[in-house]
Design a protein around this nucleic acid. Structure first.
Lengths: 238, 238
DNA sequence: CAGTTTCTGCGTACTACATACACAGTTCCT
DNA sequence: AGGAACTGTGTATGTAGTACGCAGAAACTG
């Protein structure tokens, strides 16, 4: 189920919810819950048991109401995931104070961003599950990164592209880490290595690379290689 | 959704299927179908209607059997998706003949890879849905990319990292294109721009970037910026 | 050739999930 | 006081994936 696209969503309602622009109800019984509470519980469940464990029924149980009561607060599950994905990006880093200019600043930003992804392994799937909806916290992160690049001579478009490029790299690395940490990944690796071995003549370059240790586990920083490459490339634009 | 992880899979069976290493049945009725046929039909459905449309029932209907008959050929849906994702990578490019060395060769490889992702928009979700399982065709692509980097002075590890980095970029760009092409994305963009406008003082750098046209649509090649940056960075390693 | 084994396709059934709908009770506004 | 707006709930629907067991078909065994 996975990587499902949403069918019918009301962008206006979804964004209003995400940005906290819904007007308070004036009559009726006091709401037992708040959107923030739901979001927090959703995050707690996802942190503990993964995104798949966050079902409407599970969440309802966690907050002590019936499943359908949740729909009084949230139009649908997609919106819940959006809220969760935005909420974990509270407290965007301020990097413009870091000495050394845009490069160490962007590096620090990247580390901070990557930390969030590592703290919440479900984030990647959550963001992959839906697109468009950027909340205020995610936007604040974007702002922080652009602030670092503002003093450089890059065009606005280049600045934007550079940040998106780095973000893509962070997500890629996160994905790789997830794969690696997954239960049973050793078994998969072993069996795949076996297959490569048995088909080595079909993949000469790969076989040589494997023999040379290209796939051997190291304790290098996973983010570093790509980040350095990208920042080198960005520097070359100036 | 989603982006679900699989619970229980038998790596040995899954990989054997993916690599075509299952032994033929010796008795019993002739099978009405083949795995290749299922894979092809799955791809056809996904191409036409998206990955979500590929359900076991839908596929069974398409090939003219009952749902449960499919399980005689495939352990589960994850394996089907694996097969589909590997099958679209038939005919890996040979780039070592391209003049100019590793750089134009890797660029050509990237374009070819990106083409596959664009021809099958569901590929990204399919690969995001499951990990570990690399099939022979995907491995052949990896081999082709490594072959381009083999003559350089890079270490095996660096070669590997560089290819993975580029692949991550290709996927990121694909993701962005998918978002952009999605129905209703204009509406989301418009509403988000509205929100930014109404909160411009909270995001000064972003507001300036937007004003300077950083988010304006261009007809630049989406892959180019990042690819150039990355290849520049890789060149700097030598 | 008869019996056994192995395999096929099928029907039924179970589970988990998101969510539509209508109802009863609660709070506020007029 | 009465109506409007809003809450939580119970019930129901549709769509998934897939477990299980059966009847018949093909091939191997003696």
């Amino acid at each position: 189920m996975p990587a499902n696209r949403d069918k019918k969503r009301d962008p206006h309602a979804s964004l209003a919810l995400l940005w906290g622009e819904r007007d308070q109800p004036r009559r009726g019984p006091k709401p037992k819950l708040t959107v923030a509470e739901l979001t927090g519980q959703g995050i707690a469940i996802a942190d503990a048991e993964g995104l798949d464990a966050v079902s409407m029924q599970r969440l309802a149980e966690a907050v002590g109401v019936t499943t359908m009561a949740l729909y009084r607060y949230i139009p649908g599950k997609s919106d819940l995931v959006d809220l969760m994905a935005d909420a974990v990006f509270v407290d965007p880093p301020t990097v413009t104070g870091i000495p050394g200019g845009w490069r160490p600043q962007l590096a620090a930003w990247s580390r901070a961003c990557w930390d969030r992804y590592r703290e919440h392994p479900w984030l990647l799937a959550a963001i992959g599950m839906r697109r468009q909806a950027m909340g205020p916290h995610q936007v604040a992160w974007l702002d922080a990164a652009l602030a670092a690049l503002a003093p450089t001579g890059l065009s606005a478009k280049q600045q934007h592209d550079a940040v998106i490029l780095i973000l893509g790299h962070i997500r890629s690395v996160t994905q790789q880490l997830l794969d690696h940490d997954e239960a049973g990944s050793q078994e998969w690796d072993r069996l795949t290595a076996d297959l490569l071995d048995r088909n080595s003549e079909r993949f000469p370059a790969l076989t040589r690379a494997v023999a040379a240790g290209a796939f051997a586990p190291t304790d290098d920083d996973p983010l570093d290689f790509g980040l350095t490459c990208i920042l080198d490339g960005v520097a070359a634009l100036m």
